[in-house]
Write a protein that binds this DNA or RNA. Structure first.
Lengths: 269, 269
DNA sequence: GCAAATTTGTTCGTATGTATT
DNA sequence: CAATACATACGAACAAATTTG
């Protein structure tokens, strides 16, 4: 008896789920039934169920029961620019076309526009003083009616003063803000940098994405900084934070010549 | 009493940790001490500690006690190629130079070379029949003596027959295999695709990276597929799976002209 | 090297609260 | 309102891992 009883019960239930004896979404026996069938105390079967819940194998609903979790069909976003349109899967129209191109229904909220002073983590990336006025545009995106990503882009208010007034409008800029700023101000983005990191979700993200309230499901944050040339060399002029729940998102980056079409399915190794 | 007692205890301990009253790595009071100071039963303080442990705030060590967790200093890997060397932060010498360039000590094991039949997920990506002979090279990488990533690259055995015999040697190819295959076989990689996904670690990964045995810390898998041209168009000729623990790794991708030097610090938004 | 003390881990039993049907 | 199912809380005992003397 190297393994404690609650682990053996958990293992047995896990096998029933992985083998398909209990299908995704299906209800497991109640705690009292499990107590009888495994001849253990209710607390012990609860330990087993909690072990599985922590690992995302089952979820418990008070008053209802314990259920095998459903896997969400992941969506693959292309971070590199489409060679045809020059848009990546993160910008307005590029995102929508990528979603519908995969036969899924995309929906983006109207941007929530705010003017505020730059917090430290934005000021650092825009190379402005902490407390400088900035403009943020926040958009919620849904795929197949499920919350999928949360995007916030920050610009220096300077750009609005220079004439990029559409940034202030709470409406989409379908051609993408990079193209808009180029056409309006002659501001050319000569390059950009993406930074990816994985962290536990904060409270807002748990609520918006309906994530389990333990930190089990992480979010991927893509920080995209756009650069232009100036007398001081390359300087940032916009930064975008996009938050993706890690359980329903994958990313693709293409370099040079690669075949088009569907990227391959999920990876094991 | 909206909040259950174990949550209030957990909240109180969390604040002590976040405010620095209990420093990272420091030991918390024992369960019996907590039971007395909160006037609760030992099982209830255990529920509180477990709630914190699930979220990675504390870790418990049998026979020792409960400790506030230490954050690992993340390492940032550049996925895009260095404009100077043409190497990315994932290939042999490119990786080492990126690590030492940040003032950290990198160490890579000698590759473990294996010849085997292609499992499905590799066969799919190399566009060969399941069961075809392939060559895999697996390397373990350490930073500051901590296990940092696990990389496996698969090639069709065909390449060895054509003369790329150094692939069979259990030793590094410092110039990178892409350059080696080009110089030896004239095989030119015209592009590649990276696919990133986040998933819970498997048993091997938990052991190698010393991750907590619940699925709390995920791993990031970077699947890199290299393409060459042939009479049938673009075809894959190598695929690399690199596994990174998400708690100690970040990624950067540069497009076009971007400033060099240190990328900015960790993100909040 | 061993024994004792300390600390967390497992398991039982029981009672009551809260959410859902 | 009643029945059902999970959630919280208490108490108790023994097991297993680690450190200390």
């Amino acid at each position: 008896m190297a393994e404690p009883m609650y682990r053996m019960i958990a293992q047995d239930l896990l096998e029933k789920i992985q083998s398909g004896t209990v299908r995704p979404g299906e209800q497991l026996p109640t705690e009292l039934e499990l107590r009888d069938s495994y001849s253990a105390s209710r607390n012990t079967v609860r330990d087993a169920v909690k072990w599985l819940a922590t690992r995302g194998v089952v979820e418990t609903r008070p008053g209802q029961g314990t259920f095998a979790t459903q896997r969400i069909e992941p969506f693959v976003s292309t971070l590199s620019a489409d060679p045809e349109t020059g848009l990546s899967g993160m910008e307005g129209a590029g995102w929508l076309s990528e979603v519908s191109g995969r036969g899924r229904a995309g929906m983006a909220s109207a941007p929530r526009v705010e003017v505020r002073v730059a917090p430290r983590y934005i000021a650092e990336r825009l190379h402005v003083a902490e407390g400088t006025q900035i403009l943020t545009r926040q958009q919620e995106r849904y795929i197949d009616r499920t919350a999928w990503s949360l995007q916030t882009t920050a610009y220096p208010m300077e750009l609005v003063a220079q004439g990029a007034t559409r940034l202030l409008m709470a409406e989409d800029i379908p051609e993408g803000t990079v193209a808009y700023l180029r056409d309006t101000l002659g501001l050319k983005q000569v390059g950009h940098r993406d930074r990816l990191l994985v962290r536990p979700p904060d409270e807002n993200e748990v609520r918006f994405f309906k994530l389990p309230d333990d930190g089990r499901v992480s979010v991927v944050v893509v920080v995209r900084t756009g650069y232009r040339t100036s007398s001081e060399g390359l300087v940032p002029f916009r930064v975008t934070f996009t938050v993706f729940p890690a359980d329903r998102n994958q990313f693709v980056i293409n370099y040079g010549c690669v075949p088009g079409g569907e990227p391959p399915g999920p990876a094991e190794g």
